[in-house]
């Protein structure tokens, strides 16, 4: 039995050619899908192309949707492949990283190094903008994990499935991504002060 019977019904209607069901589905998701594509590709026009290709690809293959994951997660999976294609077409290299950004800042006994200090951030700093800029510098796998994990309603399990990672790996990538953004934001917030 499907874990997502309502999604299976929506998919069945779309596969049968119901344009209204298809338009409704994409109107609901397109904002987040476009946001995801923009965060991964940078350029709004490339993001729009990827979204368009993903919508068409999803419509043409929706007959194969089997309800094991949510339709939303499935649609993001289609978009993820289109984003990967777009990256490759632009000749971009995928930069991956599994480095722990704080690994060198601890002493052997597990305490922070003596010279490491943290100052509270100025609450007036443009943190949202600083964090957005820091995310642009993240390796591809870390940025993708942060963006997909933050989507409402997407469980760790679904996000891991989408990213073709084990749940443990996803948790590790997420942790390192957040630690890298924190460190970058700390530097930028300090520069701005």
């Amino acid at each position: 039995m499907s874990a997502h019977p309502a999604d299976l019904e929506t998919a069945r209607r779309i596969a049968a050619g119901d344009e209204e069901a298809a338009a409704g589905f994409f109107r609901e998701l397109s904002g987040e899908m476009f946001g995801y594509a923009r965060k991964m590709l940078g350029d709004p026009s490339a993001a729009e192309d990827a979204l368009q290709e993903a919508m068409l690809g999803a419509l043409r293959s929706i007959g194969r949707y089997d309800g094991r994951v949510s339709l939303r997660s499935w649609a993001f999976g289609v978009l993820r492949h289109k984003i990967t294609d777009a990256h490759r077409k632009r000749g971009r290299d995928f930069v991956f990283s599994s480095d722990d950004p704080e690994a060198e800042r601890f002493q052997a006994d597990g305490h922070w190094n003596k010279d490491v200090t943290f100052q509270p951030w100025d609450e007036n700093a443009e943190l949202m903008e600083i964090v957005r800029r820091c995310m642009e510098d993240l390796p591809h796998n870390q940025r993708e994990a942060l963006v997909l994990r933050a989507l409402e309603g997407l469980s760790t399990r679904e996000a891991a499935g989408l990213l073709e990672l084990s749940e443990d790996n996803l948790r590790q990538v997420l942790h390192r991504a957040r630690a890298s953004v924190r460190r970058c934001a700390d530097q930028k917030a300090g520069d701005a002060a």
Partner: peptide, 22 residues
């Protein structure tokens, strides 16, 4: 202090903001 900063990043990073559609 580190935790507070990490928490802010957790709240802000990747937070979906339905971008203005074309």
């Amino acid at each position: 202090t580190y935790f507070e900063q990490f928490r802010r990043v957790h709240q802000l990073a990747g937070r979906p903001q339905p971008e203005d559609l074309p």
